[in-house]
Design a protein around this nucleic acid. Structure first.
Lengths: 141, 141
DNA sequence: TGCAATTGAATTGTATACAATTTATTAATA
DNA sequence: TATTAATAAATTGTATACAATTCAATTGCA
C-alpha cells in the first residue's frame, strides 16, 4: 500500500467531489427546512425565480436532471402550492411549470438562506471563484 | 433579475458542485459496470483494498456515510461475494467487514477503471491539485 | 452489583438519481 | 395522406442518502 497507489481514496479527486457535494447539500437541507424545500426542489425553484415559467425538458437541461427525477419532484412542488403544472396547448406533450404567487413570495426567504449558507463556506472570495471555474470546466466538457 | 442576483443558479457555488459530482459519478457508473459495482460500492471497496477489513462505524467515518446507507450496501457486496460480514466476538454490536479473495482480485480491474477515468478529466495536474485542496478545505471545516 | 446512559447497526420512511421502458403526441416523408 | 420516426413526459425498477427510530449490547457509575 504505497502512498502513490492511485486507488487510495485520498489520492482520488472524485471522492472529495462526491463527499463535499453531499456535505454542502446536507448543510442546505436543514437551512431549507423553513422553506419546506429539499435541496433539489430549491435549485428547481431557483430556475423558476429566474424564468417565471419553463417546460420540463428545458428545466432538465438547466439542472442536468431528467424527467425521472423531475416528474415526481414537480408534483411535490405543485402539492406544496409553489408551482402549477399545465400542458402546452400548442403541443400537449410539453408540460409548462409556472410559479404561483406563493412560489414567488418564497424568494424573499430564500435570499436569507443563501447568505446564511454562503457565510458557512470556509473559502475566500478568490478561492470560491477558482473552485467555481474548475467545476464548470469539468461540467462543460 | 440582475446578473449579481445571488439567487441565480449561475451565481451559486453549490450548484456546480452538486451537478459536477453527479456527472462524475455517472461517468464512473458505466465504467464500473464491468466490475459489477456501483460508485458507492466502489469507494467502499477502495477503503477495503486499503484496510483489508474494517468495521461499519470506521468505514462510515471514512466515507462520510451512515449505517442507513452502508447496511444495505454491505449486504449487497456480500451477496456479490466481494466481502464477508462477521460480528466482532469481543463486542457483538460491531460488524466487521472483510475482503474475500474474489474481492481482493477485483483490485486489478479497478486500477484500469481508475486510469481510464482519470484520462477523461479535462484538468491539468495543477488544476486537479487545486481542486482537490479546495474540496478538502470545505470537507474538513 | 444494578441500572441508566451510551454505543453500533439495523430498520423505517421519504426523496432523490438515473437507466430503461412506455405512452401520447407531433413531425417527417414516402 | 398513411406511416414511420422522433420527441416530451411519465413510469418502472434499483440503488443510494439521510433523518429518525429501534434494538441489542456494552459502559459507567451510584
Amino acid at each position: 500500500m504505497s502512498d502513490n497507489d492511485p486507488l487510495l481514496l485520498r489520492n482520488q479527486l472524485c471522492f472529495p467531489l462526491y463527499a463535499c457535494s453531499r456535505q454542502v447539500v446536507r448543510g442546505y437541507t436543514s437551512a431549507l427546512d423553513k422553506l419546506d424545500l429539499t435541496y433539489t426542489q430549491y435549485v428547481t425553484m431557483m430556475v423558476l425565480w429566474e424564468e417565471g415559467s419553463i417546460n420540463v425538458k428545458t428545466l432538465g437541461e438547466r439542472l442536468f436532471l431528467d424527467s425521472g427525477t423531475l416528474s415526481p419532484l414537480l408534483k411535490g412542488l405543485e402539492k406544496k402550492g409553489y408551482v402549477t403544472r399545465v400542458r402546452d396547448s400548442k403541443d400537449t406533450r410539453v408540460l409548462l411549470v409556472e410559479l404561483t404567487e406563493k412560489g414567488k413570495t418564497l424568494k424573499t426567504e430564500a435570499v436569507k438562506v443563501q447568505s446564511e449558507m454562503k457565510a458557512c463556506l470556509p473559502l475566500t472570495e478568490e478561492e470560491s471563484v477558482t473552485l467555481y471555474r474548475l467545476l464548470y470546466k469539468i461540467l462543460e466538457q
